[in-house]
Design a protein around this nucleic acid. Structure first.
Lengths: 403, 403
DNA sequence: AATAAGTTCGGTAACAGAACGAATTAAAAG
DNA sequence: CTTTTAATTCGTTCTGTTACCGAACTTATT
């Protein structure tokens, strides 16, 4: 069959699908108005989509002048994707349908043995979730797995991921595909968090967006012009190695980055210990600060000052429209408040900083976003790698904690 | 006429043009092989292009088995663009033809009165150059002007450009278009430098590229996935405000950025004065370092250490494949050598750093690149804003100094 | 009666692909 | 060493096919 014609065809098909996905039940005449394609063409394309089982008739309009219109809707259980947020301590797994509804979100402690065990754990969770939703496996098309580290697309390995054993030496993508039986994609977890916030959170409609995740470690994710910045070796956003906070030329900074040592949880605890003599956890520091503990307040101030400098560095280099703070520490309002106060003291033009709206679920929602975009593109879209589909707002069902 | 068909047509037309631009004199059969389009289609498209005056027959092949082929070539004087690199002290103006040949490059001191005077000076230089090359004005389609600062596409003003008076309050784009009589585009000069090096210099074939220009000030330009990162307010790359080097929380850092004060020429001179008691210019410091002056060597080392940290910051956030050093200080081999030595001491994974190949002419070559890409896209290409055309290697003619 | 939804019909631009003639060289035959 | 033949490539012509548009028409509804 003719190749460029097929692209041409698929192009229109995709915009029709987009109109149907976005516009809920919609008549062919409305699609025609929205897309600018002729009524006749829309009828043809919709007929094709209906035959292939992607859309279905759902009703008719009424109440308006003129003939009633037949409305079409997505067959939302025509395909599913698995979204996974794999952390060092927790795994989240969710299933999403074509209509971008996220359900069956499960959480479990990450299998500490790492490697193949984690892959199998995730597969089991995914299939369990699918079974609960009565979803047959053939309908699952793709899994998107967020990992803390830099996945390598050639080898399928995950570099810079010290928290999950064995992922740096095995073909993780291959292992997933083998166990799951369908396609799998790996993506850095913070990158997914930006995408998530961009889709359903703080960053909606913002094409130049940064996300700074601060918790046990630090990482950043950057979107420029609506696309993720991954870097050559998928190591963009390894913000822990910013030469800020501690002396970057100290030998230790080559192992744990200077910035990470300054702002991440370990550094905070250490500074608190130095000031007060007590070794406590980060949540305790926040609690003590709330109670007025001077050392705790100093630790928070100092951390926020460094964090503000980190945000300034991102703003100086990439000038995003908004910087979203995330991670267990970054999500605290006490941090946001302080960063907002410190930023104008160290950076000349205003930077829009906010905490994430989606909290710890940003990454898994981002995984769903990337998976759905990918799926819509391969099913209905152009081959262009940067053909972004705009996903509709989705209802995110309740979280189910396992065990 | 049918819209999506027109896109379809133009799409093929562009790839045919690209093949002709790249492949020099080329037969229709070869274009067919290269593009994958059928011979018949190529004949049709080439006929159209020939009728419109963009390509012409230039000869026939011989020596091979089989029938001789008629070869086609670009009519390279079918259209021209003006490339301008406007600096605080110097203006460079060049003319480029469709075949990406750059000629008539002129340099003059920038009119110190700024504003409209500079615009008129540039127009005069451009028309003078066109006259010398016997190029009629109707054939000039576009001017691309590199400016030190952040051009605003809505208002046409140039922000953060203290070196050219009046540009922050006037519609510079409008003024150019009025005086020149054809379209004009403004772009940050360091952004153009990355594009230039990406086209004909150090960064050929590298899609994730950073450029750090260090001289009187500091600025960076970033390419991600083959596209420039401009940021929301075109202020991406205002690297002078990186919170490194000096204390970013000092009040002075809000005027002149902390990093700029540490690494740029003023800071170097200041540090040398503090160490030796003598106030000298930067070239003198380099000369004295060459002669073994201890204070000068310390200044170079310290500057390089800061610069390495700045490069590390870019690498941590954007992870480019290569970082190119430019600007009067960044181009010195003494700096490169030192930065290469310091980087592994403050950043964990290797960063590829080199000096620019094009020297001070990177920006004007980048201006030509952006203009040619733009022109090819509007004449033959899709409307897609990110449809990049790959330009061929170009011969860059000799520079002509004015006065 | 007005109006909107959808279909039918005819038309067109942009391609593909097969077949074919033209032009050329390489190699075999005389 | 010439002539013939085979192989090869170039370019055109002719015949589809696909993906659309637009006008006219039918149908259903307020």
């Amino acid at each position: 069959m003719n190749d460029s014609l097929r692209i041409s065809r698929k192009f229109s098909q995709r915009s029709v699908m987009e109109a149907i996905v976005q516009g809920g039940p919609i008549s062919r005449a409305s699609i025609s108005k929205q897309t600018g394609l002729s009524k006749q063409t829309i009828s043809e394309i919709v007929r094709g989509l209906e035959e292939e089982g992607w859309v279905q008739e759902t009703g008719r309009t009424s109440g308006h002048v003129g003939r009633t219109a037949v409305t079409y809707e997505l067959v939302c259980d025509a395909a599913f994707i698995i979204a996974v947020d794999l952390g060092g301590t927790k795994v989240r797994v969710a299933i999403t349908d074509l209509a971008c509804q996220i359900f069956a979100e499960d959480t479990a402690p990450t299998d500490p043995r790492g490697g193949r065990f984690v892959v199998e754990q995730i597969a089991a969770m995914a299939f369990d979730a699918a079974d609960r939703q009565k979803i047959t496996r053939e309908k699952i098309r793709l899994a998107v797995v967020g990992v803390p580290g830099a996945p390598c697309s050639e080898t399928g390995r995950v570099l810079l991921a010290p928290n999950i054993a064995g992922f740096d030496t095995m073909d993780v993508v291959g292992a997933f595909e083998e166990v799951l039986g369908f396609g799998a994609m790996l993506e850095n977890d913070v990158n997914l968090a930006v995408l998530g916030e961009n889709w359903l959170g703080q960053g909606q409609g913002i094409d130049n967006l940064a996300y700074v995740a601060l918790g046990t470690g630090v990482g950043s994710g950057l979107m420029v012009g609506g696309h993720l910045v991954r870097g050559v070796s998928n190591a963009a956003g390894e913000m822990g190695f910013l030469p800020l906070g501690a002396d970057p030329f100290e030998a230790e900074s080559l192992r744990t980055g200077a910035f990470e040592r300054a702002v991440a949880s370990h550094g905070m605890a250490e500074r608190y210990a130095a000031l007060s003599g007590n070794t406590v956890t980060v949540p305790t520091i926040f609690a003590k600060a709330e109670a007025g503990d001077a050392a705790a307040l100093t630790v928070l101030d100092d951390t926020a000052r460094y964090l503000a400098a980190g945000v300034a560095a991102i703003a100086a280099i990439a000038n995003p429209q908004k910087v979203i703070l995330g991670g267990s520490i970054g999500l605290r309002p006490e941090m946001l408040e302080r960063v907002k106060a410190f930023l104008p003291q160290c950076f000349p033009y205003p930077v829009n900083v906010e905490t994430g709206e989606l909290g710890a679920r940003a990454a898994i929602i981002g995984a769903a976003a990337i998976g759905l975009g990918q799926l819509h593109n391969t099913l209905f879209g152009v081959d262009a790698p940067d053909g972004r589909i705009s996903l509709p707002r989705a209802n995110v069902n309740a979280l189910r904690e396992a065990i």
